[in-house]
Design a binder for these strands. Structure first.
Length: 548
RNA sequence: GCGCCUGUAGCUCAGUUGGAUAGAGCAGCUGCCUUCUAAGCAGCGGGUCAGGGGUUCGAAUCCCUUCAGGCGCGCCA
């Protein structure tokens, strides 16, 4: 990999003269005139060595040359950059490796088998998933794919909030709707769940049970209504997610955490550790001991645990399942929760950094540029199902992943629906489909594209071709950075850039020509492109179509 | 009032974790389909990186401050 080659060269060169080694930053210069890769070590070393960076760089130069490497040119430039230009040969070799050793080259193993858990979506099972959950799902699955490919052992988990007041209220809402539907005018609960899906749920309930519960008071059957309603909802959520291409390894019920006594256990352990105290008839967690603004109640004066209490137990349980790292993907409106949960992690004696929280910002839904008002209370919102049906899963996912998770997203349904250049996903998919089509043509002319005979890669000498090869070789760096920073959108951007090199090339030059050697070489290049496009789209959970 | 996030081209956003002359897409205008898919390509503009101060060889990026927007600040979930 490019980065490693530079680091090794610098290490060798510096190792001889100095004992110490600073962080070697390697970057791909924006301007091709500055070579293929550059490092800033000389600048970083300047304050240490008390010498001007340019001089350090110049002194380093002969040593780097002596250390050897696939370099055509090494130059000192600007304030003290050391710019490397690789030999053409190196690029051809790397291109070959992308195809001969695809997974090892494209999927840098930074995980080394470490166990990671990614918890995402985890929407209350009191209603259908909406577009915001869709974004969480897209980020979660992309992140999981990313980490899996980076050598982590990933478990995808959905936490079901089935214990709290909300599911109870959900059950009461259904009960009220049921009574009303059968002619019994009882009041609808304050803050109850409204919206069309409650009606549908009620229809189904009546089909199933008729008027069996008409004369049963709510106090006696609300548990049943709740249970039935949220189980029903959960199945729908699972179905929606499945159709969205998101399948979880594990569904953890909050209720189960309670019934197995894990909440009691967790609080007891915190008590032993001295982080639980009683005040004004409630139990408090001393989160301020770990930097939180205030201590938090875990058990109310009425004896009920708070939501936070089960979260404590849940996170303890996750940590004890032996993950090297647990990642929570939350809506940004939960950011206030991060600190107190980090306190929990530390209170149990785990390093704070073992838990990472990825905050996903809200999605503003638009139609033709006009905001679509959504009100959860009134039950008026666009569901993920509607978005999937209207704009498609690939497009939705891609759009969700074209921004950093923590930046706001405007999602215009009407624009997303258009099969036009407004949709970057087509741009990338189209590149993949076009290459498939080229292969088909080549096959028709009797060329075996799945096993290209001895391509003479040096025939790929056009600037367009060299540029594509280099870009392909950048993928591992983008991938690694994307995985280590938990930022899948970097892949999205890379794919657009890569496609942006291919389409012009396709327009200017013919892959299949009378010159069989050139044709084979170009097919080889296309194959590498095909491979990387598919790999990248795979990370995003987006299809790489053969035809469009 | 306090905390977190955001502020970059007309619009939507990237920006290699402090690097070299700040980039895409869209929107606008002009061209390109008898040859591997026009969901494509070629060309033309557009900037006080919200404002101010600081840190240093070097700042869109780090610190302080002001302004604007979003979110959060319960013995709710």
């Amino acid at each position: 990999m490019i980065k490693q080659i530079i680091i090794n060269a610098i290490k060798k060169a510096i190792g001889e003269s100095l004992g110490v080694l600073p962080m070697v930053e390697v970057e791909i210069p924006k301007d091709e005139a500055f070579g293929d890769a550059a490092t800033t070590v000389a600048m970083a070393l300047a304050p240490v060595l008390k010498k001007p960076p340019r001089r350090i760089a110049e002194e380093l130069l002969p040593k780097i040359h002596a250390a050897g490497g696939p370099f055509e040119r090494i130059e000192v430039a600007g304030p003290g950059f050391i710019n490397f230009t690789f030999k053409q040969d190196y690029w051809y070799r790397s291109l070959g490796e992308i195809l001969s050793n695809t997974e090892d080259v494209l999927r840098t193993d930074i995980g080394k088998g470490k166990k990671v858990q990614v918890e995402f979506v985890s929407a209350n099972p009191t209603g259908p998933l909406h577009i915001g959950h869709g974004r969480g799902a897209a980020v979660g699955i992309a992140l999981s794919n990313l980490l899996e490919r980076a050598g982590y052992k990933v478990q995808k988990e959905y936490y079901i909030n089935d214990a709290g007041r909300q599911v109870r209220l959900f059950g009461l809402s259904l009960y009220a709707k049921y009574q009303q539907r059968l002619g019994n005018e009882i009041p609808f609960p304050e803050d109850g769940y409204k919206g069309g899906y409650i009606d549908e749920l009620c229809d189904e309930f009546i089909d199933r049970f008729g008027n069996k519960y008409l004369d049963v008071p709510s106090t006696e059957c609300v548990d049943f209504f709740s249970e039935w309603a949220y189980q029903r909802m959960l199945r729908e959520i699972e179905k929606d997610l499945g159709d969205f291409g998101v399948v979880f390894d594990r569904w953890q019920s909050e209720k189960a955490i309670y019934s197995m006594g894990k909440v009691d256990d967790a609080i007891a352990e915190l008590k032993e550790r001295g982080f639980i105290y009683e005040k004004e008839g409630a139990l408090w967690f001393r989160s301020t001991a770990f930097g939180d603004d205030k201590d938090r109640v875990v058990r109310k004066t009425d004896g009920e645990y708070t939501y936070f209490a089960s979260d404590i137990a849940y996170h303890r349980e996750k940590l004890e399942r032996g993950f090297d790292s647990i990642i929570n993907i939350w809506g940004a409106d939960h950011h206030g929760y991060v600190q107190r949960l980090e306190a929990v992690i530390e209170a149990f004696g785990f390093p704070r950094k073992r838990m990472k929280v990825v905050l996903v910002q809200m999605v503003s839904l638009l139609r033709h540029g006009q905001p679509v008002q959504m009100s959860k209370r009134a039950g008026e919102f666009i569901t993920l199902r509607e978005v999937m049906d209207e704009v498609g899963t690939d497009t939705s996912k891609f759009i969700f992943l074209t921004r950093r998770a923590d930046s706001h997203l405007d999602f215009d349904i009407e624009v997303a629906k258009e099969r036009s250049s407004e949709n970057p996903v087509y741009y990338v998919q189209y590149a993949h489909a076009r290459i498939s089509s080229i292969f088909e043509q080549a096959e028709q002319r009797g060329i075996n594209t799945s096993n290209l005979a001895e391509p003479q890669l040096s025939l790929l000498s056009l600037p367009d071709e060299i540029r594509i090869i280099k870009k392909l070789c950048h993928y591992p760096m983008v991938f690694e950075l994307s995985a280590s920073s938990l930022e899948p959108h970097r892949i999205t951007y890379y794919l657009q850039e890569l496609s942006g090199l291919f389409h012009p090339y396709y327009n200017r030059h013919r892959v299949i020509s009378e010159d069989i050697n050139l044709t084979v070489a170009r097919l080889f290049l296309c194959k590498a492109l095909h491979t990387v496009l598919k790999e990248g789209l795979g990370v995003l959970g987006v299809h790489a179509p053969q035809k469009m």
